[in-house]
Design a binder for these strands. Sequence first.
DNA 1: TTAGGATTTG
Length: 804
Amino acid sequence: MRGLPGHARCGRKWGWRRWETDKAAMPVQLLKVIKGKSEIPLPSHLQKEDLKQLQEGLDHTNKYFQGIVVLSYPLTKLGDGTDFFKVVLQDLDKWCSRSNSINVLIYGKMAEDCAKVICHGDTFVVAGFKLAKSPTAREDGRHGCHLEVSEEAGSAIYIYTAPKTTAASETASVSVAPKYVYTPLNHLKDGTIVNLYGVVKFFKPPYVSKGTDYCSVVTLVDPSNVKLTCTLFNGNLDALPKIYKVGDIVRFHRIKIREYNGQMQGITSAGFASLTFDGTVGAPVVPRTSSKVYTFMDEEQKTIEDLRVWAATNLSISGPAAKLSGVQPMLYFDLTCQLVGKAKVDGSSFLLKVWDGTKCPYPTWKVPVEARDLEGEKVLLHQLRNLTVDILVYDNHVQLAKSLKIGSFLRIYSIHTKQASAENEDFSHIEFHLHGGTCYGRGIGVLPESNPDVKELKTFLESVDLADSQNMESMSSMELDGTFNNVTDLESHLKRCQQLSVTVLTDHQDLSNTELKTILNSTAPQQYRIRAKLRTYKPQKLYQSIKLHCSKCNSLQEVPNGGDFDLILQGAAVTAPNPDLHNTSWYNSVMWTTQDQKQRKIAIHFVKHDEMLQQPEDTLLLVEGATLKEIWKLTKRFKCVIPVRSTEDHLELLDLSAPFLLQGNIKYYGCKQCSTPKPIRGLSSIAAEQRPSWEPSEIAQVLGIEQLQYVFVMRFTLVDGTGALNAYIFDYEKFFQIPASEILTNNFLQEKMQMTMNTLCPPGRKLDDLPWLECFIKSYNVRDAMKHRVYYQIFDTTVAEDVV
DNA sequence: TTAGGATTTG
């Protein structure tokens, strides 16, 4: 990002001539428009361009672009102090889709001037702009390029302000597009047909009604705090809103309002259409709809974003969804899962076999069915037998259940877990029922593969190692929560957390709290103390929060899995150890050949100290030709293991996708980009030290490796009643008081972290019941190319002592 | 037409 110098203050004048003679001093022209004519025409040498003509590589000198201001962002300062202002212009001549708009990025004095005067609906003319690829085009769906404007670049801006007291039709230079009017829920009148927005407070997924249509019941709420229950019918399942969870946001067009039992009620009328959006703050604003043609503008995007923040702050929407590992007997829950098998049972019930990759902590019932009635892949059904659960669905749900495709992703709403009344409690098991009826939204919904929850589930299911029974054990969260012996313990623990903060500041205690709303409306960088609740966090699979960080190039990467390491070792084992490199002044070597068919050669070089071999627990080994399993065994006995391979004249490290060092359970990796591997003999200098400690950092240094650090990277969505913001945790150890380097190989630490997160954000709880967190956060600007965003990071904060 | 939120009782 280039830096722009500060600009001399200039008085605001409205004259055209002044612009011609002294355009650098007067970049922003504010003009009035009355009845379609501007007081002053634009310079004659300027020619109008439309959106289509705004392409890279074309000459835009003496061209201007004109659009309507449909969105503007708060004035902010870039890192170097330059003012920055972004507006979105819409080309009204191209009124059809959402790509009729373009981002304009304004820098320096012009940014400040524009921010002061600009209003929604103004006509905005820009000349002398620079055109560049828009890095946000994929996200915001706007024009592939954006316009960059600054005084320095000799740009000029003309703003035609529509008279605010005059009816829109009178500002005739602006052709006013057909616009939908949306009625707040507290202004609905009996017998009208309206358009409206709402946050889903309750819904019944579409089910087969007793008439001819599918039916879906949806209760909405909006910032007027009025509720509206809508009963929607359609013979086509696809035409009903695609609502997947409470908190989704819908836009209904042409819904009929009627009074029923003294309350307003919505019901489908002819031409009813709906869009549904994910209600998560910060998620992409992509409508779910079956209609091919719909209007969706930036203004509407803003409405969705505002509703999300309102809902996050004001509605009690429960947190992370339940998993099979977290089920309790005698309750109702929603399950996101994959269908593995199905079978008819009798006339009024039907069996679904599903899994979500986690293991139910209780013995579960198996519904007896005839083998020939069971649909699904036999091999898979057998492989997953310990992870699938049987759900018996009844009555009205049978028809829909029969039609489900094996392999599809489902959300089953309001499953009942029933403790079977076995005579001997030791053999009691848990049953899963989807009872008849649609009370409490009971039903089955099919989720598309594009659904973010499905994507996450798929990734997780792929990571489940079916052969590894230990893995399955560790997936039972019942064991993770083992410290809470019963529900009462957990309750009292949570109660304590609701009163005190579950996190504490390690510094800045003298500061007072700032509301999230204030922070969101402020420029970065700044630091704040906050008190907020953790509504949700990412990733939900905690093992995904561990990354490798290079402090030199600041890159983050995934921790390689054991499979990659194994492949690299196999590749290295193809080259036999070079005997010329054995037994030097600083190591002793042994080599042998495996007895199997492969006749693999393994060499181990024991690094000496003072000409002497050390105790195994103090010894560093260089290993050639070993398998993953063999290396693993060696790390159990020796202090350090470095996998190497022979060249003609020296030993060298393997590919840096493999760890350059293994110590105990920990694998140490180097940054591929920043490391310049040096010969292995550099280690002899450490071996010669009086008491070699074999510190990973020291080893990395002599081997020319820029060591990657294990780090927790998480996104916390925090709310405090005034707003919602996403803050990042970037932490080696301090926040969780768990070293990020050790957690992947330590079950105890994993359990501890899971328990900490369960305390900070208890699954399935409503907003009111979430505990408070005290945090210190800093805001900072991130800019790449022309994109500028403010991010927040939690620091100088740690989990309270009695929580961990 | 259907359902009109407010858990089955298998």
